[in-house]
């Protein structure tokens, strides 16, 4: 018995030693190759850190594109992008569970205070711009709409299309859930902080709004420019009654003609450093801005 026990112990010790060596070696190799390449390319940036990017559903696609291209250029970098809503991303960076928050609305003062209370001084970076299209079914008879009318429609003052020059039919409202940055931006910017009408439907994603509008001739909703399809068209928007109306596009938004536009924010805890700085520089550089354009948003310049 004793002999067998001894043998067992010996075998166990041997295995542990072997496994230890086995895992040790590659790790060592990794760090050395990591180090040398990093020196060559990026002046000793520590790529071992996994960068967590979290936030706006509007920006998930563009964030993933940024991360993919960035990781192609810097193979050691690890960047994970998830959505959940601007509020979710900002909450995550306040609680310290994300490194970068993507947000389609500016941080509220309350959130800034919360972050400071947790010891984070947040840096705000504008990474691009987004136009919000006022979207309707492709067969909708609406030719143009003013900001005032949009506000009245979404607050429930106007409930029939004929009041804004359409058919005699009830308007169905499609809005996002309250954790969406688009919801918050739209409420503040277009509704002037008045309440959404109680009968407006709160859809769990922009995709669901598009699906709803596709089926509903009398529907109206707001979506990012990238989400417009053949079945769902944007309505030209005028700043006020009598003014010229514009369709959302890169030109009209950059020229300031199209009124419903907003910046896309990145929030970083403290000054960006290491990989995060590299990543932010990449986004603001020509490569990152080209992706902004490709994904249907408006680049900075």
């Amino acid at each position: 018995m004793k002999k067998i026990a001894m043998l067992l112990v010996l075998i166990m010790v041997a295995t542990v030693a072997l496994v230890g060596c086995g895992s040790d070696t590659p790790v060592n190799e990794n760090t050395t190759s990591n180090g040398s390449e990093a020196v060559e390319v990026n002046n000793e940036v520590d790529f071992n850190k996994l960068v967590q990017v979290k936030g706006s559903d509007t920006m998930v696609n563009i964030g993933q594109q940024w991360a993919e291209v960035f990781m192609d250029e810097n193979p050691q970098a690890q960047i994970a992008v998830t959505g959940g809503g601007s509020g979710t991303g900002i909450a995550a960076i306040i609680n310290g569970t994300a490194d970068i928050a993507q947000s389609s609305r500016a941080m509220k003062d309350k959130e800034k205070e919360d972050a400071e209370a947790n010891g984070y001084e947040l840096t705000e970076i504008i990474a691009g711009r987004d136009g919000i299209a006022i979207a309707v079914h492709k067969d909708s008879g609406i030719e143009e709409i003013t900001m005032e009318q949009i506000k009245d429609i979404f607050t429930g003052v106007i409930t029939n299309w004929k009041e804004v020059g359409g058919n005699d039919a009830e308007i169905t409202l499609y809005s996002r859930e309250s954790n969406s940055g688009t919801y918050a931006f739209f409420k503040e910017f277009v509704l002037k902080d008045e309440e959404y009408a109680q009968h407006s439907m709160l859809m769990p994603s922009t995709g669901a709004i598009v699906e709803g509008l596709k089926q509903d001739v009398n529907g109206i909703g707001y979506v990012g420019l990238g989400y417009l399809t053949d079945d769902v068209k944007a309505v030209p928007v005028a700043k006020e009654a009598g003014a010229k109306s514009f369709l959302p596009s890169i030109e009209t938004i950059n020229a300031g003609d199209y009124p419903v536009a907003r910046p896309l924010f990145l929030y970083v805890a403290g000054e960006p450093q290491g990989v995060i700085k590299l990543y932010v520089d990449f986004i603001l550089g020509s490569g990152g801005q080209a992706i902004v354009k490709e994904t249907g948003f408006i680049p900075l310049n």
Partner: peptide, 20 residues
């Protein structure tokens, strides 16, 4: 035949962005 909001959906949809 109108839209409705349930308690469960409210909790699920809004929990993510509340400040603790």
């Amino acid at each position: 035949l109108t839209s409705a909001r349930t308690m469960t959906a409210t909790i699920a949809a809004e929990m993510g962005d509340t400040v603790r």
